[in-house]
Structure formats: C-alpha cells, structure tokens
Amino acid sequence: MRKYRFAILSFAHIHAWSYARVLKELPNTELVAIYDDSPERLIKAGDAFKIDVDKRYSDYFKLLEKEDIDAVIVASENAKHRDLVIAAAEHGKHVICEKPIATTLKDADEMVQAAKKHRVKFQTAFVMRYHEATVEVKKLLERGEIGDILVITTTNHGMYPGLWFADPKLAGGGAVMDHTVHTADLMRWYTEDEVNTVYARIGVNIRPHLPTEDNALILLRFRKGVLGSIDCSWSRPDNWPIWGDVYLGIIGTEGYILVDAFRSCITLASENKTLKWIYHGPDCDKEMIRDFVKCIEEDREPRASGWDGRQALEIALAAYESHKRGEVIELPLA
C-alpha cells in the first residue's frame, strides 16, 4: 500500500492536533514533518507526535523545499492561510486548508487560482461534509425522503475558543468568521444552490472584554427560495458539558430531518469536574482525510473544494456587511 506523506503547516488551530492524530491512525497516511512559527507549539506538537527534531521547521519554505511530501494540512491562524497554501501549491503539494479559507475574498481567490494553476487538490476542511450523520442526510435528500427543502435552521454554537480566535488581525473577526461557514457550507451542499441574500445582526458581547463579536444571528435566502438561518454564537459557557453543537433542522415538503451531530454523548460526572458530555459519534476528521487521499488517488475534486471555502467565506463577510449597514445584502458581494 502506498503511504501518503503529509506535513502539517502550523498547529495554531486546535484542529491540527486532531488531524495529526488521524494521520497517525490511518493505514495509508503518515505525518512526516511539521512547521510552526511559534517555537513553543513546534516543540509541543513535535513531542506529542514524535516528530524528529530535524523534521520540525520554523520556516515553511524550507520544509516545502526539502521534504518529500504529497500533501500539507494548513491549520494556521486564518489570516496566514493564504501564504502557506499558495507556497504549498507552488511546490506541487496537495492542500487541505482549515476553515474559514481566508479572511478576505481576494486571498481566497488567489488561493483557489494557485491550486488550479499548479494542478494540486485543494480541500477546505469542511469536516461537517464528512460526518456520517450529515452524509446520511445528503443521501436521504437525494432520495427525496422529505421532498423538496423549504427551510434549513442551523446552529453552530461554541464556547469561546480562546487563543487568537478573537484577534481581528489573525482571525479576521470573531464568532461570525469562526462559526458561520460550517453550516453555511452544509446548506449550500444540501440545496445545491447559492445564497441570494444575507441579513445579520451581531449582538452585544456575552464576553465584553473580547475585541471581536461573540454572538450573532444570520438569515439567508437561497436563489431558488430556500430559507436558512445560522446562529454562529460562542454562547456556550466554559462549564457547558460539551464544546458546542452543529444542529440542523431541515423542513421539506414531505418531512423533517433534525441533525444534532455531536449529541451522541456519554454523560460523565467526575470528581472535582463539571458535568461532561463525552462524544462517541462519527470521526469526521478521519473521514475527511481518508476521502482526501482517495481524491488524490482517483484524481477527483474534493467534496468540499477551495471554491466551496470561498463561497462560504463570502456569506460570513456578507453577514458583517449586513450588520454594518443594517440592510439585507445581495450576493455576490461587489
């Protein structure tokens, strides 16, 4: 069996740790080298995943020049995605990029262009397209089990993730930037349609000390008329039993589907700890990377492409614009 050789470019995003675990677990992938611009993180990740010291890079260019790898996973701060993705593409490496794809449409477009030009696979890490429950929903919809979609109500709640997630320069925003794109992408996938209008309101912060927003509500209308809503708020307190949720209520002409993707949990009360819900459901990170390798092998487009990342980003940016102007925003953005 051919082993696909990966590097992870930055462990700034917490998901990087899960992707590294998956690369170790899957039979046909290996984690060969890592890069990070934080010396502490480089040591921490290097030690955690037993990466040889000479395979730990503080210069991604050097890593891309020296290492014999097939693909990279970019999990830096959002604003740094662009440079890493374009450099990887220029070196002929396939790319998985953490969401949101970037913080501006200009960056996103350049990334998509670079991947196209250098003929590498470019996957946005919309792991929710690989969660077995949401995949099942896609099949149910395709079989017409609930008729035509009328409305999709979604939430992607979370705790405040800390780190750089509320740094406007690195993250490009707060909860709207972080949590709009997952369910926006699922809605695009399910409706096979694009968003026509966006209306959004950012609330007064739950955590007043944060420099970015931590709660907002978004209403969408798709071109063919499907209505949608997103609650992207970091409204879960630190002692909530689980990090958050991905919830979708899909109303069709002949039925209703309710997805509560991370509700498959064991309830645990443990000494000196708050009550926890321990998730035991599908491993969407693993499914995504497994499928990505197949995309390389079979030379096909990833299920969630760079373009999908770009389209979801546009919805998040339109939400900011709508809040700023107090108006319904039409897509595409000018």
């Binding site: 739950i206 955590r207 007043p208 709660n215 708020s233 409204s235 879960r236 307190p237 909530w240």
Partner: peptide, 8 residues
C-alpha cells in the same frame, strides 16, 4: 434558550 454574560 437564553445566553447571558454569566451563563446559558
């Protein structure tokens, strides 16, 4: 559901 500055 109602989320506030000190809880949910």
């Amino acid at each position: 559901e109602i989320a506030g500055t000190k809880g949910l």
